[in-house]
């Protein structure tokens, strides 16, 4: 669920949008340095992966189900720069093709999900990984922790935008409580799924997991 048009005023959208553009430009430079030979296909396929994995339903209870958001997962799997670009592209395509998320609110959605979601997630991942012994299960646990925090962090980004430029009339405190509590719950699901997915990749092709190789390594293109 992305922010639609007219939900946050245009001034706030423009300001946050500019911040998002700057951060994405920085990620482009970072990705170019990190991805050897500018491997656009790889980042493109990561974007498809994120898009597809969001369609994978995880049954919760009584016929309801949830899905992965994938920001932290992508950051751990392909590194934060490529993840930012992948999520950015997913959000642009969703807004322009599927009318999911307002066109004038695109900057807000980009900021919350492709910047905050990915980078806060990656930061948490690095911190937790550092605190744990150096092995595969630590990487998966750190990824789970990153997934857990990245969801309410992105929601907090929304609440901040709401506080500054809401056109809605719910109290900010109400929105804060509702958003953060629901997203903490969603975060638990995100944590479990991220943990399990990273474990699955580590079990089969650990060489592909960016967060396992350590960020000094470049993505290897064979």
């Amino acid at each position: 669920m992305h922010i639609p048009d007219g939900f946050i005023d245009i001034k706030t959208s423009a300001a946050v949008g500019s911040a998002a553009v700057i951060a994405i430009a920085a990620s482009l430079r970072g990705a170019k340095a990190q991805l050897t030979e500018k491997s656009a296909p790889l980042a493109g396929l990561t974007a498809v992966f994120v898009f597809a994995v969001q369609m994978l339903n995880f049954p919760v209870a009584a016929g309801t189900s949830g899905h992965l958001l994938g920001g932290a997962l992508a950051a751990v799997l392909v590194g934060p720069y490529a993840a930012t670009l992948a999520i950015t592209v997913v959000l642009i395509i969703q807004a322009f093709l599927f009318a999911d998320g307002g066109l004038t609110a695109l900057g807000l959605n980009l900021f919350n999900m492709s910047i905050i979601g990915v980078w806060v997630g990656y930061g948490i991942f690095l911190l937790v990984r550092k605190a744990l012994p150096k092995n595969k299960s630590s990487v998966a646990i750190a990824a789970g922790a990153a997934g857990f925090i990245s969801v309410p962090a992105a929601a907090a980004g929304f609440v901040l935008q709401y506080a500054v430029g809401a056109t809605a009339t719910y109290e900010t405190s109400t929105v804060f409580t509702a958003m953060i509590s629901t997203h903490l719950l969603i975060g638990i699901g995100e944590a479990i799924i991220t943990f399990m997915t990273v474990s699955a990749v580590l079990a089969s092709r650990s060489d592909l997991v960016f967060g396992y190789k350590g960020n000094a390594h470049e993505l290897e293109i064979r």
């Binding site: 790889l42 498809v48 992966f49 994995v53 392909v78 997915t197 699955a200 592909l208 293109i221």
Partner: peptide, 21 residues
């Protein structure tokens, strides 16, 4: 289902590599 997601990542990644080469 997470196993599926993991396998999907590996397949997407490998396809990306293949396309790139």
């Amino acid at each position: 289902i997470a196993g599926t997601a993991g396998a999907l990542f590996v397949r997407s990644y490998e396809r990306g590599e293949r396309v790139h080469t």
